[in-house]
Design a protein around this nucleic acid. Structure first.
Lengths: 145, 145
DNA sequence: CTTGACCTTCCAATGATGGGAAGGCCTATC
DNA sequence: GATAGGCCTTCCCATCATTGGAAGGTCAAG
């Protein structure tokens, strides 16, 4: 199977397959005499593993760890679980952060008449007049930006 | 005021101030005879505006639109409100997506014994045995990855 | 044997930010 | 007035995952 077919069957683009090979996430594929990469069913399964992990928001580095565990027949499921829970925790952190943004924006937008007048609490807040909005919404220690 | 002080007062790093100038988000700063950038109180206020908008998750392109409205004395608050609501909608979309990831991962992690045995539904799911998890959780059209 | 679809490598760009080097400027201290 | 060290300047590179494209080789069907 060449790279195009592997891409179709795995849902990972050919570009990304080459990239993953280049960065060492996956081993180098076999080659035909003319230099084309060849893929087996196992390779496609690995690519689908990667695709699925990406869909779950894992970074490529974490996927490397997952792959290592996947290949390790004597792995401990605790190690896998720990990676998953770290991922959950990271996602939850980002969700909380975004929810705080939404709350602030929603509060500001509700105070905005939304007509043809220029007065707008949204701009006023961005300008720095923070008294118009509850400070607890966005000045907490949770922001990592 | 030179760029270091402007950075300190605005919370935007000197690097980013130069970058914003280079990309046209902010107008070119004045210069001293020896080439140093100079900033006024108004400039710092604009930088703080940018900083605050970044904290609310606006992309730089959207901040450009916000700044244009901020400068426009005859703006309509409806335009500002629309930008804010688009931002809210975008954030909510991402939050939903992440919540679906968390739900899937949480479900998988709960099925994982987390001990020294190798059996692990997390890996099994990543491998492609999607029957272990409700497909509606993550196969919807909302994914933009 | 040509055509079109595929493959190869290499280079570049995205968006927002940080790091660093090489060199110039400013200010305080001696 | 010289010097030190802290700031400034520009320029280049790196990140992270992904896409795009160009230039050129290969394969399969007509």
């Amino acid at each position: 199977m060449n790279i195009g077919e592997a891409a179709k069957h795995s849902g990972v683009s050919a570009k990304m397959i080459r990239y993953y090979e280049q960065t060492g996430l996956i081993p180098s594929a076999g080659r035909t005499a003319s230099g084309y990469r060849t893929y087996t069913g196992t390779d496609v399964q690995m690519l689908r593993f990667i695709r699925r992990a990406r869909d779950l928001g894992f970074q490529v580095e974490a996927i490397g760890e997952l792959l290592a565990l996947w290949r390790d027949r004597s792995r401990h499921s605790a190690d896998v679980k720990q990676l998953a829970q770290a991922q959950i925790a990271g996602l939850r952190r980002k969700i909380v952060e975004m929810e705080s943004m939404v709350a602030t924006l929603d509060h500001l937008a509700q105070g905005c008449s939304g007509d043809d007048r220029p007065d707008c609490p949204i701009l006023a807040d961005l300008e720095g007049e923070a008294s118009l909005v509850a400070p607890a919404c966005h000045s907490g220690p949770g922001f990592n930006r």
